[in-house]
Amino acid sequence: NKEHILAQKEVLTPIEYEHYVKHLFDIGEITKELYIELSS
């Protein structure tokens, strides 16, 4: 869920976080809207 993803932002580097969010989007775990929101 969104809270879990945002928690990852605390422990990952910005680049790792971007890759993580992109991966979730690629596998269909999150919607495009959520992907855009989380990567901003």
Score class of each variant (00 low, 15 high):
residue 11 V to C: 07
residue 9 K to T: 04
residue 23 H to F: 13
residue 7 A to R: 09
residue 30 I to E: 00
residue 1 N to R: 11
residue 38 L to F: 06
residue 9 K to P: 01
residue 2 K to E: 04
residue 21 V to L: 12
residue 4 H to K: 11
residue 8 Q to T: 08
residue 12 L to H: 03
residue 28 G to P: 00
residue 7 A to P: 03
residue 27 I to S: 14
residue 2 K to C: 05
residue 17 Y to R: 01
residue 33 E to R: 06
residue 3 E to I: 12
residue 34 L to A: 08
residue 19 H to F: 14
residue 25 F to C: 02
residue 8 Q to K: 11
residue 26 D to I: 13
residue 2 K to G: 03
residue 38 L to I: 10
residue 6 L to C: 02
residue 24 L to M: 08
residue 13 T to Q: 06
residue 5 I to A: 04
residue 11 V to S: 08
residue 10 E to H: 08
residue 25 F to V: 02
residue 22 K to P: 00
residue 19 H to M: 09
residue 19 H to K: 14
residue 27 I to L: 13
residue 40 S to R: 11
residue 5 I to R: 01
residue 31 T to I: 04
residue 22 K to I: 06
residue 33 E to G: 08
residue 23 H to I: 03
residue 4 H to I: 05
residue 24 L to C: 02
residue 28 G to S: 05
residue 12 L to E: 01
residue 21 V to Q: 00
residue 2 K to L: 12
residue 15 I to E: 10
residue 34 L to G: 04
residue 31 T to F: 03
residue 31 T to H: 05
residue 10 E to M: 09
residue 23 H to T: 11
residue 31 T to D: 12
residue 6 L to D: 03
residue 14 P to D: 10
residue 38 L to M: 05
residue 13 T to R: 05
residue 20 Y to A: 02
residue 17 Y to S: 01
residue 8 Q to D: 02
residue 9 K to R: 11
residue 8 Q to M: 13
residue 34 L to R: 03
residue 9 K to G: 05
residue 12 L to F: 05
residue 27 I to T: 14
residue 3 E to A: 15
residue 33 E to Y: 09
residue 11 V to F: 14
residue 8 Q to E: 06
residue 18 E to V: 12
residue 22 K to T: 06
residue 38 L to V: 09
residue 22 K to M: 11
residue 35 Y to I: 02
residue 27 I to W: 09
residue 1 N to H: 10
residue 20 Y to I: 03
residue 10 E to I: 08
residue 38 L to K: 00
residue 39 S to M: 10
residue 28 G to W: 03
residue 37 E to F: 12
residue 15 I to A: 15
residue 39 S to Y: 08
residue 9 K to S: 05
residue 11 V to D: 06
residue 34 L to V: 13
residue 26 D to M: 12
residue 5 I to F: 07
residue 34 L to E: 08
residue 39 S to P: 00
residue 22 K to E: 10
residue 26 D to K: 12
residue 11 V to G: 08
residue 38 L to A: 03
residue 21 V to Y: 03
residue 35 Y to K: 02
residue 27 I to M: 15
residue 25 F to G: 01
residue 18 E to R: 15
residue 28 G to D: 04
residue 2 K to W: 12
residue 36 I to M: 15
residue 6 L to F: 06
residue 29 E to P: 00
residue 32 K to V: 13
residue 21 V to S: 01
residue 20 Y to L: 11
residue 6 L to N: 04
residue 24 L to I: 04
residue 31 T to E: 08
residue 1 N to C: 10
residue 30 I to Q: 00
residue 30 I to R: 00
residue 2 K to P: 09
residue 1 N to V: 05
residue 3 E to K: 08
residue 22 K to G: 06
residue 20 Y to H: 03
residue 35 Y to P: 00
residue 19 H to I: 14
residue 14 P to A: 13
residue 6 L to I: 06
residue 34 L to Y: 06
residue 4 H to Q: 12
residue 9 K to V: 05
residue 18 E to S: 13
residue 4 H to P: 05
residue 26 D to T: 12
residue 5 I to E: 02
residue 1 N to M: 13
residue 35 Y to F: 14
residue 27 I to F: 06
residue 6 L to T: 07
residue 38 L to H: 01
residue 5 I to W: 08
residue 9 K to F: 07
residue 12 L to S: 03
residue 3 E to W: 11
residue 36 I to G: 11
residue 38 L to T: 02
residue 2 K to V: 13
residue 26 D to A: 15
residue 37 E to R: 05
residue 36 I to A: 14
residue 2 K to Y: 10
residue 36 I to K: 11
residue 17 Y to T: 00
residue 32 K to P: 10
residue 40 S to E: 12
residue 15 I to R: 09
residue 37 E to V: 11
residue 35 Y to L: 08
residue 17 Y to N: 01
residue 7 A to F: 05
residue 16 E to W: 03
residue 39 S to N: 15
residue 20 Y to E: 01
residue 20 Y to P: 00
residue 23 H to Q: 10
residue 38 L to E: 01
residue 14 P to L: 15
residue 34 L to S: 06
residue 10 E to W: 08
residue 37 E to S: 09
residue 24 L to R: 03
residue 32 K to L: 14
residue 26 D to W: 14
residue 9 K to D: 01
residue 33 E to W: 09
residue 19 H to Q: 15
residue 17 Y to D: 00
residue 10 E to R: 08
residue 4 H to R: 08
residue 12 L to R: 03
residue 22 K to N: 10
residue 24 L to F: 03
residue 18 E to N: 10
residue 36 I to N: 09
residue 37 E to Q: 14
residue 5 I to S: 02
residue 13 T to L: 09
residue 18 E to D: 09
residue 22 K to W: 15
residue 18 E to K: 14
residue 26 D to P: 00
residue 2 K to S: 07
residue 33 E to D: 10
residue 5 I to L: 06
residue 18 E to G: 08
residue 21 V to H: 00
residue 7 A to Y: 06
residue 32 K to D: 10
residue 19 H to V: 15
residue 23 H to W: 15
residue 29 E to V: 08
residue 11 V to P: 02
residue 23 H to Y: 15
residue 22 K to R: 15
residue 1 N to S: 15
residue 32 K to A: 10
residue 7 A to D: 05
residue 25 F to T: 02
residue 11 V to Q: 11
residue 13 T to H: 08
residue 7 A to M: 09
residue 26 D to R: 12
residue 33 E to K: 07
residue 33 E to P: 06
residue 8 Q to H: 04
residue 24 L to P: 00
residue 5 I to V: 08
residue 25 F to Y: 12
residue 5 I to N: 01
residue 8 Q to F: 10
residue 5 I to Y: 09
residue 13 T to M: 05
residue 13 T to N: 06
residue 30 I to W: 01
residue 38 L to S: 01
residue 27 I to Y: 08
residue 3 E to T: 09
residue 2 K to D: 04
residue 36 I to T: 11
residue 28 G to V: 02
residue 21 V to I: 10
residue 16 E to N: 06
residue 16 E to R: 04
residue 5 I to P: 02
residue 12 L to W: 03
residue 37 E to L: 12
residue 1 N to T: 10
residue 10 E to A: 10
residue 32 K to Y: 15
residue 4 H to N: 14
residue 37 E to P: 01
residue 16 E to T: 04
residue 8 Q to I: 10
residue 23 H to V: 03
residue 31 T to S: 06
